[in-house]
Amino acid sequence: GKMTGIVKWFNADKGFGFITPDDGSKDVFVHFSAIQNDGYKSLDEGQKVSFTIESGAKGPAAGNVTSL
């Protein structure tokens, strides 16, 4: 299901970062391709987001990332 969290950091040049889930679980990798907006796909440190957990090739990653 949907989770919420805070963006820990995001490197716009490399197109990835990490989200710290509100439930205290392990930080989740986020790739820019998972960001659900029409414009420039980037996130800001400290931004609140909702997301799902998808299993990627390198382990769990955030999917369906939407800013709240």
Rank of each mutant, 00 (worst) to 15 (best):
D13M: 10
G17E: 00
K14P: 02
D23P: 03
E54D: 12
S33F: 06
S33L: 14
A61F: 13
G5F: 01
T4N: 08
K58Y: 13
E45K: 13
I6N: 06
V7P: 00
A12S: 14
G15M: 04
Q36A: 10
K2H: 11
D38E: 12
S50E: 11
Q36Y: 08
G39Y: 11
T20G: 06
F32D: 03
G15P: 01
K58S: 13
T52G: 04
M3K: 13
V7H: 00
W9P: 00
S25K: 08
D44S: 14
G63K: 15
T52C: 05
S50T: 11
G1H: 09
F29E: 02
A61Y: 14
G63N: 14
E54P: 02
W9L: 04
F18Y: 07
D38W: 06
G39F: 11
S67R: 12
I6A: 07
G56L: 07
P60H: 10
K14A: 15
N37P: 07
F51N: 00
F18E: 03
Y40P: 14
M3F: 13
V65C: 03
D38I: 09
G59S: 09
L68M: 12
G1K: 09
T20E: 08
D38S: 15
F16S: 03
D13P: 08
D22M: 09
V28T: 03
K58M: 12
V49L: 03
K41S: 08
S55C: 05
G15F: 03
H31L: 06
F10W: 13
V7W: 02
E45Y: 12
K26W: 09
L43Y: 03
I6R: 09
H31T: 04
L43G: 01
D38K: 08
Y40T: 11
G17T: 01
K8H: 09
G5N: 00
A61Q: 13
S50L: 08
K14I: 11
Q36R: 11
G24S: 05
N64H: 12
G56F: 13
D13T: 11
S25N: 09
A12T: 15
S67E: 10
F18I: 06
G15L: 03
I19P: 00
P60G: 05
A62R: 01
S55Q: 14
A57K: 14
H31F: 08
D44M: 14
G59F: 10
A61K: 14
G63W: 13
F32E: 08
F29C: 02
S33K: 10
A57F: 13
A62S: 03
D23L: 06
D38G: 10
G39S: 08
F10T: 02
S67F: 15
A12E: 14
D13E: 15
F18A: 03
I53A: 05
A61W: 08
S42R: 12
V7N: 01
V28K: 03
F51H: 01
S55I: 10
T66H: 06
Q47H: 07
G39A: 07
G39M: 10
N64L: 10
A12P: 07
M3R: 11
K58H: 13
T20Y: 09
A61H: 13
K58P: 10
L43Q: 02
D27R: 05
D23T: 11
G59N: 09
Y40C: 05
K41H: 10
T52V: 15
G24P: 03
G46S: 06
A34W: 03
F51L: 03
P21K: 03
F29K: 02
I35Q: 03
I19F: 02
D23Q: 07
G5V: 00
G56K: 05
N11K: 08
K14F: 09
E45H: 13
D13V: 11
L68R: 04
G15E: 02
G46P: 01
F10K: 02
L43C: 02
N64K: 11
K41A: 07
Q36K: 14
M3Y: 10
G63T: 08
A62T: 02
F29T: 02
G46V: 02
K8Y: 04
I53P: 05
A61C: 05
E54Y: 13
G17P: 00
G5M: 00
K14Q: 09
W9F: 10
Q36H: 10
S55Y: 14
P60C: 04
D38N: 11
K41F: 08
F18Q: 03
T52H: 08
H31W: 04
S25Y: 08
G5Y: 01
K48T: 07
D23R: 06
G63R: 11
D38Y: 15
D38F: 07
G56S: 10
Q47W: 09
P21S: 05
S25A: 13
A57L: 14
E45C: 05
S50H: 09
E45Q: 12
P21H: 03
D22F: 12
A12W: 12
A34Y: 04
G15K: 05
I35P: 02
K48Y: 15
P60K: 07
K26D: 14
I35E: 02
G59H: 08
L68V: 08
S55D: 08
K2A: 11
Q47S: 09
H31Q: 04
A34N: 12
I19M: 02
S25T: 09
I35V: 10
E45I: 12
D22K: 08
S67D: 11
D44G: 15
V30C: 04
D22V: 07
G56Y: 10
G5T: 00
F18V: 06
A62G: 04
V49C: 04
W9E: 03
N37L: 13
I35K: 02
A62I: 02
Q47F: 06
K14V: 07
N11D: 10
G46I: 02
F18H: 03
G59M: 06
G17R: 00
A34G: 14
D44P: 10
D44F: 13
V28D: 00
L43F: 06
G5S: 00
M3V: 13
G17V: 01
G5K: 00
E54W: 08
V7E: 00
Q36M: 12
G59T: 05
V65R: 00
P60I: 11
H31D: 03
G24W: 06
A12G: 12
L43I: 07
G46E: 03
D38H: 12
P60F: 11
I35C: 03
K41C: 05
Q36P: 06
I53F: 08
V7A: 02
S25R: 10
F16W: 13
V7G: 01
D13I: 15
K48P: 12
D38A: 15
G1I: 14
T20C: 05
I53V: 11
S50Y: 09
S25G: 10
T66V: 13
A34H: 06
V65N: 01
F29A: 03
G5Q: 00
L68C: 05
T4S: 10
E45T: 15
T4I: 08
G63L: 14
G1L: 12
G17D: 00
P21G: 03
D22E: 10
K2I: 15
S42W: 15
N64E: 07
I35R: 01
S55N: 14
H31A: 05
T20V: 14
S33Q: 07
A34L: 03
T52E: 10
G15Y: 03
G5P: 00
D38M: 08
F16R: 02
G24M: 08
V65L: 05
T4Y: 15
K41N: 06
V65S: 01
W9R: 04
K26E: 14
